[in-house]
């Protein structure tokens, strides 16, 4: 058996100290070791963006990193946003604009949007479209996602 390695990774504010195989993908660590199922895996080769999480504030694809590579980092997943009863403004905007259908790609879009709006709190439609260009969605045609990103910006400014 491969030797396990100790890691200490903070996810959504909780510090997890675990022993993991060096080859364990960060996406599998988050989903299967920690049971945070909101982060999805669509391709496992870094293209679709469903597995996007924030690592020390930067959006990253958790399927192309090993858990051991983020030892000591601070990670945020979709579970760090709102709850079903009280959603985050970005989540509310996605619902209001019908920016999700099957919802599989959605957590990736949400995390990309969190980072994007921090840097650009009042984006134009073109900027919002550019920002989500790296995330794949098969259901929505993206138009409603673009609108949701802009609506989220408005909601967050008003908060």
């Amino acid at each position: 058996m491969t030797q396990k390695v100790k890691v200490a990774i903070t996810v959504n504010g909780t510090l997890y100290e675990r022993e993991v195989e060096p080859r364990l993908l960060l996406s599998d660590f988050i989903r299967h070791d920690l049971g945070l199922k909101g982060t999805h895996v669509g391709c496992e080769h870094g293209l679709c963006g469903s597995c996007t999480v924030l690592i020390d504030g930067l959006s990253s694809r958790s399927c192309t990193l090993f858990a051991v590579m983020v030892d000591g980092s601070d990670i945020k997943t979709v579970e760090s946003l709102g709850t079903m009863e009280k959603m985050h403004p970005i989540q509310e905007a996605f619902q209001e604009k019908h920016a999700l259908q099957c919802g599989f790609c959605t957590p990736g879009f949400l995390m990309t949007t969190v980072e994007f709006l921090e840097g650009n709190p009042n984006p134009t439609a073109e900027e919002a479209r550019e920002a989500i260009d790296g995330n794949f969605c098969r259901c929505t045609g993206y138009e409603n996602i673009v609108e949701a990103v802009q609506l989220a910006a408005k909601k967050m400014a008003a908060d």
Partner: peptide, 19 residues
Amino acid sequence: YKRNEDPRLLTGNGNYIDD
């Protein structure tokens, strides 16, 4: 109508096959 299923899907509370 806004969709009934959205709060679940938006907050990581969906339950897909690999979950």
